[in-house]
Design a protein around this nucleic acid. Structure first.
Lengths: 198, 198
DNA sequence: CGTACACTTGAGTAGGATCAATTGAAGTGG
DNA sequence: CCACTTCAATTGATCCTACTCAAGTGTACG
């Protein structure tokens, strides 16, 4: 929860989750999604207090670090420290991309971007074992990520469905045409090399 | 420039700048503003290539690091390495906040947030020596930050001016009522403690 | 004196919000 | 096993915020 003083820092080992913030009036804003290899709570560890909340979308397993030992880690394991910074910088890069998308693209473009992005990230982390290629989110999640109303989100996703780019199952989305989504969104894909796994 | 392979990492010592990305159609998206104490090029240093461009808003002085020596720094100066991560995490926090604002607030709220935010950050970094309290940006910058058209940005800023919250000078904005802006934006201010200065 | 750039202003339009209902699947408890 | 609730997805109608188009002003500068 936002505002909590967790004594821990986590690495996601398996499963899906998301980071979000709430506004006073009850509206939720999803900031990003968490997948294996992501860090949870770095901000909290460095600055004393979580600035956002985190929630799971599927059963998740985590690796736990003691927050107090972060200083020790920096002193004794410079390579790990470097990896931590790398992951933080990568998260920053993703946020840049999201910001670009939300500020300057239409609803259809944004939706296409989000789904292509989630699909590609998930694929890069082996979240799709075998053929099952479904993203475990609701349309409300999409709306809260893109800053659209649910109604309009629904109509937008329906358009993507009509074009055979995705198929919306209950509580999940199947990607049918990754390339097609990227073309609509004007996004050139997720290129990440050598992500360290802590 | 985005895509460049700079051999350097910089710290801003004085002056204003901003980070941005361009879309194919020529539209610009400002991601964040840079002030004394900020890092430029960490992403580029860690991942080999700049993912965004940077531009100055006023004369700027920088402190230069050799990118190659980042490994050495992590091995020999763990405290500095820790500070680097701290700054990266802080940037992430600011991006979260921007994302929240852009996705879930009206034009007036967003504009109020942006100006209050810039004002408070600048104040925290001693950018305002003496009485001169002016933010050196054009309305085009505001538009490209908030994802609004210039026309609508102009009308929105005018409203803030009518309410005596700001005064728009040519190429600059004076903040008259910081509290009032925060109230409109529904933002509770910039609380940053102990930022390291590298 | 001409050009460029930042800022203004007005008119018409459209993309997405809000309001209001409905369907359908998945629990849950008696 | 069936009524009852809940939550996700869907659809239609109306409204309004912010966009686009189109001019115009004022100032700085070569």
């Amino acid at each position: 929860m936002e505002g909590s003083h967790s004594a821990h820092l986590f690495t996601v080992l398996s499963g899906w989750g998301f980071r979000y913030k709430m506004l006073d009036d009850g509206r939720r804003r999803i900031l990003n999604y968490m997948m294996p290899g992501d860090l949870i709570g770095l901000q909290g560890s460095l600055m004393g207090e979580m600035q956002h909340s985190v929630e799971a979308l599927s059963p998740v397993t985590l690796c736990v670090f003691e927050r107090d030992k972060l200083g020790t880690l920096y002193r004794n394991y410079p390579d790990l420290a470097y990896d931590l910074t790398w992951i933080a910088a990568q998260e920053e890069r993703i946020l840049d991309e999201n910001l670009l998308s939300i500020g300057r693209r239409s609803a259809l473009e944004r939706a296409a971007y989000l789904l292509a992005f989630l699909y590609q990230r998930a694929k890069a982390t082996n979240l799709f074992k075998g053929e099952r290629v479904s993203i475990p989110i609701t349309q409300q999640h999409v709306a809260d990520t893109l800053g659209l109303s649910i109604v309009h989100t629904n109509k937008t996703l329906k358009k993507l469905g009509e074009r055979k780019l995705i198929r919306w199952a209950d509580r999940g989305c199947d990607i049918l045409d990754d390339e097609g989504l990227m073309k609509i969104s004007g996004w050139d894909g997720y290129h990440e090399k050598n992500r360290p796994f802590i």
